[in-house]
Write a protein that binds this DNA or RNA. Structure first.
Lengths: 198, 198
DNA sequence: TAGAATTTAGAACAAATGTACTAAAAGTAT
DNA sequence: ATACTTTTAGTACATTTGTTCTAAATTCTA
């Protein structure tokens, strides 16, 4: 399978962004790594911000696809929550520079900031729905006043575990994801009912 | 009270960093805002990294002072945990650019990264101690296996609530701090005992 | 195959930045 | 008052970067 120049640029940019951060990496670096001229690169993507937007879109598409796939499953909601979050963690890690440079990117690229705010709104509603649904199935038992904080905690953790791991975690990628996902899931554990078997 | 040039530089740099992020702000910007030459500024601080290190040191000093002050109190540990975290949140917010540009700064300035890793180690031990202490006083009741995840969650939240707030929270500074601190404190609520009166 | 569209390489330019240097000004100590 | 140190302003230079432009090469299409 042969990648188009556009795709090659995106793939290489993702690697460099993840390794070095979204600043430090310029159109010239990416072009140089690919062995093409930066003039050519700028023909496809005017600047690094455009590349970042394209990669962000890739991430969103992958997450949407995952959500669609998982909601079709017939497993119980607890299992779905577990697997959905695990696979989300894996996908997020692929695009980790977006999380590592979170604020900087949002400040620089208003389009991404707007989209992200909307995305968070949706995710919050999804969480609310899943929790209500688990509540009614007696998988979990959460006092009403604890629901909103729990969702906030979960969303925040989901966005920033990668940043913390980048500085503090010693271990390979798989261990990293597994460890932080386990810690993430532990947010819900105090509320699990006994009949939440899985 | 007249500030020395050094202190004026640090104060202005803090403002600019918080507003615009630690990149975008250069020695020339800071000098220009202060109405001094950048040559003069570089006489005091060779470059922005040195300024960032100095501000980081200010933050650490303030947090240490707070810790010392609070451990001298005779209140119960739950109250201390509450107040210590609240005032830590306030101090962190003063130096929020350090958290907003967390990964970037750690990557750029190895000295800060090393120090921060050591600091996290200490904070983890402090948390462990406080929790064990509250446990023995029957303020809280946490299953052994939930302690480590809870501490990890608390430390992660403490570091990154500012980043999340920067993008998503609409409201003034005091509301922001109060909201996120409340959410932070909610991490402990599932484990509070009834006799944890306050 | 001829012509058109797309893709590519490379040069050129302006702006910004870190860094170093010089010399003047201000302050301090003897 | 004189010599010395610290502080300040301003200049200069090399590098990097984003951006634009030109022309050649390649691919596509009819």
């Amino acid at each position: 399978m042969v990648l188009s120049t556009k795709d090659k640029i995106l793939a290489k940019a993702l690697i460099l962004f993840n390794e070095q951060g979204s600043d430090f990496v310029t159109v010239r670096h990416i072009a140089s790594e690919l062995g093409i001229s930066h003039g050519n690169l700028c023909y496809h993507f005017a600047n690094t911000d455009v590349i970042i937007e394209a990669l962000y879109q890739q991430l969103v598409d992958k997450l949407n696809e995952l959500t669609k796939e998982m909601t079709g499953l017939s497993e119980n909601q607890l299992t779905i929550l577990y697997q959905l979050s695990y696979r989300s963690f894996e996908i997020l890690y692929q695009y980790r520079f977006l999380m590592l440079d979170f604020v900087r990117i949002m400040r620089r690229i208003p389009a991404i900031k707007l989209h992200f705010k909307a995305l968070m709104q949706i995710r919050q509603e999804q969480f609310t729905y899943i929790i209500a649904s688990m509540q009614s199935n007696s998988f979990i038992d959460i006092p009403e006043k604890n629901i909103a904080p729990l969702i906030e905690q979960a969303l925040l953790f989901g966005d920033f575990w990668i940043s913390r791991a980048e500085i503090l975690f010693d271990g390979n990628e798989q261990e990293k994801i597994a460890y932080y996902h386990k810690t993430f899931y532990a947010l819900f554990e105090p509320y699990l009912c006994d009949n939440a078997d899985w």
